[in-house]
Amino acid sequence: MASILVTGGAGYIGSHTVRHLLEQGHEVVVLDNLQTGHRGAVLTPHFYEGDIADAALIAEIVRKHSITAAVHFAALSLVGESMKFPTKYLEANTVKSQQFVQALVENGVRRIVFSSTAAVYGVPEVVPIPEDSPKHPINPYGLSKLFIEQYLQMMETLHGLKWIALRYFNAAGASEDGRIGEAHDPETHLIPLVLQAALGQRESLSIFGNDYDTPDGTCIRDYIHVRDLADAHALALQALADGKPSGSYNVGTGKGYSVLEIIEAARRITGREIPTVQAPRREGDPDELVAQVDKIRQDLGFTARHSDLETLISSAWNWHANHPHGYR
């Protein structure tokens, strides 16, 4: 089994991936600055609180733990905040990631799985979105991730780095046993916001726009269970270990649910009212974002097995109902 460094392993998707890799028998080392992550979500004893741009720390971790591959989650990820503070996002996500990758290469690590995003596409020309769609990010968050995908390509040319970038759509859900789940501050994701309203932590849920070109007028998104995302990272690591070529992959289900479908399912599962209020559209929200998933299925053997609407919401509800204040 391999010794793997996971940056951002105290975060939502990172912590679930760490758990999955541990279950596979790998040694997993987490590096996280705990700016948005939670120490209580880290299930490995090998934890370092620090910065991904700290080259000396990276060298120490690689040497001490004989690291052979990395999974790189650490990033800022609020689209709205990136619009207000673009330089902050390019510094944290792009510049520091470049420094991190450089430190890996200098210390002999030649395999990396990168946490990218569907935001690299911007407003898609075709739905479901294939990986070769034009990349026109409409926010600095998406741009910061696209730059790193391009940098990884360059590092492969220059230094033989092998990489896979996974472009997520909408992560959701929690672990089956309810031990780890989704806890952001501020919370911006739809399903946690819906469940906070169900718990009475919010007076109501805002529905941003009801005039989209969709069957019920609300946005449609491709939701994937965080457990399936963790599996995708493990498969990507194995593909690199097996010598498969570098590349970028969508990670989704190929099916979308509307905002109203999510709310109705949550009402049924929780047995709560979940009051809603109508709000204006948000700038830059496309009608529909759904992944084309043929490539990852064919190349990596990935299939989303836990991403039906019932599992997504019931697992998240189990977490939120038992952890109403997150990890605090």
Rank of each mutant, 00 (worst) to 15 (best):
I180E: 07
I180N: 05
G181S: 11
A183Q: 13
A183M: 11
H184L: 14
P186R: 12
E187D: 13
E187H: 12
T188H: 13
L190M: 15
L190Q: 05
L190A: 15
I191K: 05
I191M: 02
I191A: 09
P192N: 03
L193G: 08
V194G: 06
V194T: 12
Q196W: 02
G200W: 07
Q201F: 00
S204F: 14
S206N: 13
I207K: 09
G209V: 09
G209Q: 08
G209P: 08
D211K: 11
D213P: 02
T214H: 06
D216A: 09
D216T: 08
C219I: 07
C219Q: 15
I220F: 04
I220M: 04
D222W: 11
Y223R: 05
Y223F: 15
I224C: 08
I224F: 03
R227A: 13
A230F: 10
D231Q: 11
A232C: 09
A234F: 05
A234V: 06
L235N: 02
L235R: 15
L237C: 00
Q238N: 13
Q238Y: 09
L240T: 07
A241D: 00
D242V: 03
G243M: 06
S246V: 03
G247M: 02
S248N: 03
S248A: 15
S248P: 02
S248T: 14
